[in-house]
Amino acid sequence: MKIQGLKKAYHREVVVDDVSFEIPEGKVLSLIGPNGAGKSTVMNIISRLLPLDDGKILFQGKELHQWKRQELAKKLAILTQSNHIAMKLSVWDLVAFGRFPYSGNHLTVEDTKMIQQAIDYMELGDLAHKFIDELSGGQRQRAYIAMVIAQDTDYVLLDEPTNNLDIYHATNMMKMVRRLCDELNKTVVLVLHDINYAAFYSDYICAFVDGKIAKFGTVEEVMNKKTLSDIYHVEFEIMNVANKPLSVYY
């Protein structure tokens, strides 16, 4: 996926300004940056939740808005934090929705198999017939990931997937992201607040400041004292933990 000259403004206030980058295939890319830097806006635009003012997004050689919605849903999955469900819906039902772009409301035998696989992959077997509103935050997040797996897309876009999760669930979430990439060969793009999660679990990092890209590169290229201090305006120390550059800020 190629993003070229992306622009977005709200009432003349420019929030994303001439952003261009290419999402590396089959890798994990984290978007980081301070609040209001535009990372979530960029994410929402490539997730087609927000219209863009200017620029182009090329997805597999074709502009994003020229794709048929249904075809795009088979290639690109998104998961945001606003997932309130007011109705009675079981985990199995939710995961089954992942097959909607393929078969609509009528599931085939093939679909049922994919749904079961996704549920097993996320170890949700015991919970399959529980209602979504009876689950804990971590379980619910896993159910949504299972749905994304059932959707069987090449790309997965996650908007702040570790939000509202404790250390245990957040870390498991990040390990899951890694598995999506390594085992299921998906390209994963995620917005993260915690730079150490980004450093430990992704291949590439794209850092935003004031609506522009401050730095795009491999984890090693971005995770150094000078770059991080410039982005966040606080002091940083970089430490090597388990062969990954992790940061301490104060």
Binding site: A73, F97, F100
Partner: peptide, 13 residues
């Protein structure tokens, strides 16, 4: 699909 909310409905095409 609308039951899932706006974002998931868009996700599913």
């Amino acid at each position: 699909v609308l039951v899932l909310g706006k974002h998931q409905a868009i996700n599913l095409g």
